[in-house]
Design a protein around this nucleic acid. Structure first.
Length: 540
RNA sequence: GGCCCCGUCGUCUAGCCUGGUCUAGGACACCGGCCUUUCACGCCGAUAACACGGGUUCAAAUCCCGUCGGGGUCACCA
């Protein structure tokens, strides 16, 4: 009975009540691959008007769950992936923490024991290990001999008298095959005889993941189990548990995992050093680090890198961009649609169009999507976002002086599409908020060397300063006219004055349009900064 | 090693189920050019893929078989 195939028609309609879940372990951070899995679950539930829930898999670590969970919940909220049931929001099936559901698990174990689908096993770890090694030596698949299996009180008494402790193992079928009809991979076959008698309850009475997961999915009425591919090989034992317990089976869908940059290996948080050798990944990381430094954030490489969602929030990426990038990792709407609103994603998402092969994480592509979204973002929304970064960096005081708002709006407008993330405002606009006398640290050494210390730069600056004093109004168009007139009179190239001038007023070689910079800075500040620069140029 | 999964440009993908319209489309990256006061944007262009071998067929990226390659998983972790 357990061996019969469970083929489903792939054209079956999705049941009326769709309920999906994502089950994070409280680890203290939210992994980008996990978010992708959660996103697909969320989209599928929303697509079919169902519920998406969060269940906390904390059977292993009872301590500090709240602290380790907070960043994860925060990450989901930031991304706009809301959950209908779970931590903080509750729900009809509370609690949603595995650590608080031991009685339910134990009851299920008892039921399995009573039905003969599981047994008490008195073997020691060494004995099991010896069998395993023997099998390896003989080059045959390992299958537990069940020597210390005790199904009757007599057997149990015998082993117990030997001072043995027991665990509960699944009594897996040893013949026939299982066919899983996976919504992404199609039919997948497994031979029952290759499945191990996995432990489902430890000798201290606590239960293990597979048992807990199946019981939870049933208790929470999960209709679709959508998870990463690495769980595919766990599925037979979970189906065995579910069937033995008389549960209806959920629909399974195994997503390809998110792979490392430029490779097919599963993305993990532990191989950061390796990913940093990937140029695109390293650039994204460095960009974030630079902003983090300016923000004086106390980050460690452990929790602040492009594999962790928190990284993107701190650097000032847009949640919509992250989501849009992630939805494209293993799923496509059609042959050309790249940018979608959440509504469009929800309306179009289907498991059918999920790819089978792993998709590598491409930091450059994410960057391009972010670029697009930032350019689309209305100025009114950009400004407050950037203001927060300037304040965190200590460039603008809190509360915000009233003149900052309008000025910042102009600055952001002038910076235009140079701003890819909100954190970029610091590098592009800090000099607007620095004192008239720019601190030494505000000068880019290379730019000073290249433009300011170029022979003749100081003298040119001094001459142009005079011309600048007469410009009225001090706005982009008259400024441009003044500069061009100056270039003509002096018989020089525009670049000869433009570059030193930019470094003089901003300290950098790159930035928003020069005339915008001058105008926004105001005549007084410009003149003073030019004076300073003339001295710097002369010192060479 | 056993079992399972996967294999279209460097990367994300469309096409595959329902062979022909695919001399394989889009996007990102890369390279070249234009624009330009820097940077960025934008625009134009170029390079670039059906893992391999058989078979079926008038016709195969698409169907079948095999090979090779890559990955996942084999816990009293989740």
């Amino acid at each position: 009975m357990l061996c019969r195939s469970m083929a489903r028609s792939s054209t079956r309609l999705v049941p009326m009540t769709v309920r999906t879940r994502f089950a994070p372990s409280p680890t203290g951070y939210l992994h980008i691959g996990g978010v992708r899995t959660a996103l697909f679950n969320w989209l599928f539930a929303r697509r079919h008007g169902g519920q998406f829930l969060l269940r906390i898999d904390d059977t292993d670590q009872q301590r500090n769950v709240d602290a380790a969970l907070a960043p994860i919940l925060h990450g989901f909220r930031w991304l706009g992936i809301d959950w209908d049931e779970g931590p903080e929001v509750g729900g009809p099936y509370e609690p949603y923490y595995q650590s608080q559901r031991l009685p339910q698990y134990q009851a299920a174990v008892q039921k399995l024991l009573d039905g003969g689908f599981a047994y008490r096993d008195y073997a020691t770890a060494e004995e099991i290990q010896a069998e395993r090694e023997a099998a390896t030596a003989e080059k045959r698949p390992f299958l537990y001999s069940r020597t210390w299996m005790a199904e009757t009180p007599e057997q149990q008494a015998k082993f117990q008298s030997q001072g043995r402790l027991w665990v509960v193992r699944l009594k897996m079928p040893r013949e026939g095959k299982l066919i899983i009809d996976d919504q992404v991979r199609g039919q997948v076959e497994f031979l029952w005889e290759r499945e191990q008698d996995h432990v489902i309850q430890r000798n201290d009475g606590t239960c293990l993941y597979h048992l807990a997961s199946v019981v939870d999915d049933f208790d929470f009425q999960i209709s679709h189990v959508i998870r990463a591919e690495e769980h595919l090989s766990n599925t037979p034992r979970q189906i065995f548990i579910a069937q033995s317990l008389g549960y209806p089976l959920p629909v399974y869908a195994h997503l390809p995992f998110v792979a490392e940059p430029g490779s097919k290996n599963k993305l993990s948080k532990r191989k950061l050093d390796k990913y940093l050798k990937n140029r695109d990944f390293a650039q994204t990381n460095e960009h974030g680090l630079e902003i983090s430094r300016r923000l004086n954030l106390q980050n460690t490489a452990e929790t602040f890198n492009p594999v962790i969602v928190d990284f993107y929030e701190q650097v000032g990426y847009l949640p919509d961009a992250i989501i849009n990038y992630l939805v494209l990792l293993g799923w496509s709407l059609d042959d050309k649609t790249e940018f979608m609103t959440r509504q469009q994603m929800i309306e179009n998402f289907s498991l059918e169009r999920v790819t089978k092969a792993p998709a590598s994480f491409d930091a450059k592509k994410l960057w391009a999507v972010e670029d697009h979204y930032m350019q689309q973002l209305p100025l009114k929304q950009k400004v407050p976002m950037m203001l927060r970064f300037l304040q965190t960096a200590g460039l603008v005081p809190t509360p915000t002086p009233c003149e900052v708002g309008p000025q910042l709006t102009k600055i952001v407008e002038a910076a235009g599409d140079r701003l890819k993330t909100a954190g970029d405002i610091i590098a592009y606009a800090d000099f607007f908020f620095l004192p008239e006398q720019l601190p030494e640290s505000a000068f880019d050494a290379k730019a000073v060397e290249k433009s300011l210390k170029k022979p003749g730069a100081g003298a040119l600056l001094a001459k142009f300063k005079t011309a600048l004093e007469a410009v009225e109004p001090f706005e982009p168009a008259p400024l441009e006219a003044a500069l061009h007139g100056f270039v003509e009179r002096e018989g020089i190239k525009a670049g000869d004055i433009v570059h030193p001038l930019r470094v003089a007023v901003s300290g950098k070689g790159v930035g928003p349009g020069l005339y915008d910079c001058l105008s926004l800075l105001g005549k007084q500040t410009c003149l003073k900064r030019i004076d300073r620069a003339i001295k710097m140029a002369g010192n060479s």
